[in-house]
């Protein structure tokens, strides 16, 4: 849906041409705990980042929240996370940790005082880890439209008969390209439940971004995640509030949902991951001009 609206806004001529910075004075709001945390099916040291909100024009990295106690409960075992010495506010599991599809993970945070009243607070959030179908294959397709060039990542896979929610990411030579919330693509199977995808375009690489330029021989890896409906809407809401908004298409600005309690914000999510790779060949790169 959002893609459609974005296309329409391209059709409205010249709307984005006249933009300039202005001074806006805004008030402050109370400080909240911010949680960003992931449990995936990959075996690695998983992390949870704790920080706090700040004034909108704070213009400094988010203040880290250190010395908290973090426990991850999978319903059977409780894992303890440890704060990294060099990265204040980042808490890690052991490096052999991996999530198991079907389990529900609960993150418990304690021993911290965000509101500064001298009393310790506790926070928690839970997420189910949903499974995801493997991807058969991917292909790259060069595009050149309206002066923009790049690649569509086309995906061949079965959507399961159940309702699914996905996030799509892309790596080049092992390095994550879609490493921000706004570059990640999330999708619900509402309109194609149970169908084969026939190479649907699921991510874009743009030659306007230096790290996304593809050369012959590059390995492009597509990552598909089976996410929860709640996280899907978290990303949709966050993207809609971070992308520019217009009086034509945007509803009133509104705070982004969270799965944390006790006035904390952010999201703790568990998801499964599958991968599929392709090597960029000369007939694809730059539309085959180097052949």
């Amino acid at each position: 849906m959002k893609v459609i609206l974005a296309i329409i806004s391209i059709l409205v001529p010249g709307l984005w041409n006249c933009t300039e910075r202005i001074e806006v004075k805004v008030d402050s709001t109370f400080t909240r705990l911010v949680v960003e945390g992931y449990v995936t099916t990959d075996t690695m040291a998983h992390w949870v980042r704790l920080s706090t909100t700040s004034d909108y024009f704070h213009n400094q990295p988010a203040p880290a929240v250190s010395k908290a106690s973090l426990r991850l409960d999978d319903g059977e075992v409780v894992h303890t996370l440890r704060e990294a010495d060099t990265l204040p506010g980042w808490y890690f599991t052991d490096s052999d940790f991996y999530g198991i599809p079907g389990k529900t993970y609960t993150l418990n945070i304690s021993d911290l005082d965000i509101d500064g009243d001298g009393l310790m607070e506790e926070y928690s959030a839970s997420s189910e880890l949903r499974r995801v179908n493997p991807v058969d294959s991917i292909t790259l397709r060069y595009f050149n439209a309206f002066g923009t060039t790049g690649y569509e990542v086309q995906v061949y896979a079965w959507d399961s008969p159940e309702r699914d929610w996905y996030s799509f990411k892309v790596k080049k030579n092992g390095i994550m390209l879609t490493d921000t919330l706004t570059e990640m693509n999330v999708q619900s199977d509402e309109f194609f439940n149970g169908n084969y995808t026939h190479g649907i375009t699921s991510q874009f690489l743009s030659n306007e971004k230096p790290d996304e330029i593809v050369e012959i021989g590059d390995t492009i890896t597509f990552e598909i995640n089976g996410i929860t409906e709640d996280y899907y809407y978290y990303v949709i809401e966050a993207q809609s509030q971070i992308f520019p908004q217009t009086p034509l298409f945007s509803g009133p600005p509104a705070n982004i949902r969270t799965n944390l309690n006790n006035n904390a914000i952010g999201f703790f999510v568990a998801y499964s991951a599958e991968y599929s790779s392709t090597i960029a060949t000369s007939d694809v790169v730059d539309g085959g001009v180097n052949q």
Partner: peptide, 14 residues
């Protein structure tokens, strides 16, 4: 926005 937070490389509004 009267506040902000960081998540996955972006600054999001409160």
């Amino acid at each position: 926005p009267t506040g902000r937070f960081e998540y996955m490389g972006n600054i999001a509004p409160v």
